[in-house]
């Protein structure tokens, strides 16, 4: 078998130096990366283990909450501050994977996980994401789990995360560091659409690493809900998921945040639908209209046409749950 080196990093600088060389991959929880190695999707020369860096904290800041990139999904989901300030994030995390996986998976790792498209995983199949230029197996194939928004002629895969859908809705910011220093990326702009480069999942440069995520304070805690519709009630990826957060004043929507999972190459924030709801009253009719707006531009393939019905239905259900209308 192909041998690889394993290095445990003790400093951020050490990680940056290690990843500046080609063939090196960062490993944290390893819940997805190890799969990729086992399936023969990647064969790195070196793994640099970052789990010993002091980046596990969940700390209040002046304007919100900071999650260290190494904070475990299970820890974040049960954290008192998260539950108090950002219950939507906790709900999304608990909807993902299994307790065993959440005990290993980190915030940064969750963001870096790759699509579960079966054509991506099957090395005998064409896949532009795995091997650019080979074609998209899913486009004319079994595409039940695939995108209805933002796909390209190259790739119709979806990003599998639940956590990221909540963070996209909550206006989070990703903090990354590279040789040139830190930069802050709005969460909604961290992941990218496939366009002509489906091999790229996000805008993190090859020589950068994620160090944390900031979530600004908000008034959504009382009225937020994460709905995940899936083929079984645990340990399945979303057919469609919805992160809904509302800031209500009496029966009126002051602010709304809405994002979907399982529908695009990135967490799919629904800005237009949010804007539509602001100032409207909390009624099922408002939610239905928002759902109609949300679906504008959606495009289905042979096996995922149901998502054109399931997505709006799920938006309405999530908003009803969030607003207490259910």
């Amino acid at each position: 078998m192909k041998q690889f080196q394993y290095q445990r990093a003790s400093t951020q600088q050490g990680v940056l130096e290690a990843i500046s060389k080609p063939g090196t991959k960062i490993i944290a929880g390893g819940t997805n990366l190890v799969d990729h190695m086992k399936h023969g999707l990647i064969a790195p020369d070196k793994l640099v283990d970052i789990t010993h860096l002091p980046l596990k904290g969940i700390t209040p800041t002046k304007t919100g909450l900071h999650l260290g990139t190494l904070a475990l999904n299970s820890v974040v989901s049960e954290d008192a501050l998260v539950l108090q300030k950002q219950p939507l994030l906790s709900m999304a995390l608990k909807a993902g994977a299994s307790p065993q996986l959440r005990n290993m998976a980190t915030v940064g790792g969750n963001m870096m996980q790759r699509t579960r498209c079966t054509y991506f995983y099957d090395t005998t199949m064409p896949c532009n994401k795995r091997e650019p230029g080979t074609g998209c197996g899913a486009m004319e194939g079994y595409n039940r789990m695939h995108a209805i928004f933002g796909a390209s002629a190259q790739c119709i895969a979806v990003h599998p995360s639940d956590m990221c859908v909540a963070l996209a809705a909550l206006d989070a910011t990703v903090i990354v560091v590279g040789k040139k220093g830190q930069r802050h990326i709005p969460f909604t702009e961290f992941h990218r659409l496939p366009d002509d480069h489906p091999e790229l999942d996000n805008h993190l440069a090859k020589d950068e690493m994620i160090i944390g995520v900031d979530i600004p304070d908000n008034n959504f805690a009382k009225n937020s809900y994460y709905l995940k519709v899936r083929d079984r009630q645990s340990y399945a990826f979303a057919l469609v998921s919805v992160a809904a957060a509302l800031d209500l004043s009496g029966g009126t929507i002051k602010k709304a945040r809405l994002a979907m999972g399982g529908v695009a190459h990135k967490p799919w924030r629904l800005f237009e639908a949010e804007k539509f709801m602001e100032g409207k009253s909390v009624t099922e009719e408002t939610f239905k209209q928002a759902a109609q707006i949300a679906l504008q531009g959606a495009k289905a393939y042979e096996y995922n046409a149901f998502k054109l019905k399931l997505a709006p239905a799920s938006i309405v259900e999530a908003l009803k749950q969030a607003s207490g209308l259910a």
């Binding site: 039940r144 083929d231 399931l310 239905a313």
Partner: peptide, 15 residues
Amino acid sequence: LPITPDKLVGWGELS
């Protein structure tokens, strides 16, 4: 079979 959500969604229509 199987009775997955896609086989039921929209049977009563959203409206």
